[in-house]
Write a protein that binds this DNA or RNA. Structure first.
Length: 314
DNA sequence: CTTCTCACCTGCGCGC
DNA sequence: TGCGCGCAGGTGAGAA
């Protein structure tokens, strides 16, 4: 369940069960679920057992659970989680039967809630867990949402802050857009420019801002970029409030429940159906091994290559 | 340097 | 029923 709202639903769901809980057992069934982890599955199990979770944090689509105790070398660490395309973090009763596509099970003991199982299940195995070092943020601000520490996992340090992060720098985002000679949709999906946006919310935000996905990023007027950023925030916040987007049982919260934002989609997956704004057909085009969905009438290409330099400053 | 393609996987729904 | 094909919410190594 991969974009920002879905990952945030998972983070918020894990927090009450995990913070303050001690790991009493780890079973890593599948080494593919540890592709981001430097050691072996056995080493992961041994290193995590006995540790205590001190919080939950998220930046973009990266989620991490800081550990109370430092590493033997004295460095702060966290369990880093990336859900990939199909990962799930599920909370289950201790000893619950194996989930479909279960890859890793972490048995925990919480002072208030007793024994529980945290299960990482993942059909396509693009997601993974890792024990990763926490390093200081360059700006000294909190590393992500949900936790105050100015630390971020090494593996997530190259990712930009997400648009719902209070420390997100709008002016920096605008400056970086002006330097990009790519289509705006490609830039929205570039996690080093702005994190948390994936294929669904990119299409939704571009539809809401009435911007063609192939518009040249550096050709957008400042007011257009500001409108886009506002729509990105609006669609992410609304999707979060509705529990995320679920098309099937794949994308669920920690209790296995689907979100209902799929009912609020205006463009994504709606090709051949009328645009909710103008009534003309939404189209689908192929885009980097995936699809873009947009309204060709509401979303025109304005920023034509070769003309953008003259009109970029507003 | 920047930009872009492709591999990494499993499973589902569709047309034949 | 079965089979092949296209498609799916992401990422990052390596090529251009």
């Amino acid at each position: 369940m991969p974009e920002l709202p879905e990952v945030e639903v998972v983070r918020a769901g894990l927090a009450p069960a995990v913070v303050g809980a001690r790991v009493v057992g780890v079973e890593a069934h599948d080494a593919r679920a540890l592709t981001r982890h430097a050691g072996t599955p056995a080493e992961f199990e041994a290193r995590l057992t006995g540790r205590t979770f001190g919080g939950t944090a998220r930046r973009g689509k990266f989620l991490w659970l800081p550990l109370d105790e430092a590493s033997p070398a004295g460095a702060p660490e966290a369990v880093m989680v990336h859900l990939g395309m199909s990962g799930q973090m599920l909370l289950r009763a201790a000893g619950a039967p194996p989930e479909r596509h279960e890859r890793i099970r972490i048995a925990i003991e919480h002072p208030d809630h007793g024994e529980l199982a945290v299960v990482f299940a993942d059909q396509r195995t693009f997601g993974s867990l890792a024990i990763d070092a926490l390093i200081p943020t360059p700006d000294g601000r909190a590393g992500g949402s949900g936790h105050d520490a100015p630390l971020v996992p090494q593996q997530a340090a190259h990712i930009a802050r997400d648009p719902l992060d209070p420390a997100f720098d709008d002016a920096l985002f605008r400056r970086r857009l002006v330097m990009k000679s790519s289509a705006i949709k490609r830039v929205l999906l570039d996690q080093t420019v702005v994190s948390g946006i994936g294929n669904i919310y990119a299409d939704e935000a571009l539809w809401a801002a009435r911007i063609h996905p192939e518009s040249l990023a550096r050709g957008l007027a400042t007011r257009t970029v500001n409108r886009l950023l506002a729509e990105v925030r609006a669609v992410l916040a609304k999707a979060l409030a509705e529990g995320g987007t679920s098309f099937d049982a794949q994308y669920v919260n920690v209790n296995g429940e689907a979100g209902y934002f799929a009912h609020s989609l205006n463009a994504y997956g709606r090709h051949g159906k009328p645009c909710p704004r103008c009534g003309r057909m939404i189209v689908r085009t192929s885009f980097t091994n995936r699809s873009s969905h947009f309204c060709p009438f509401c979303q025109r290409v304005r920023a034509v290559q070769g003309r953008e330099a003259a009109s970029a400053d507003h």
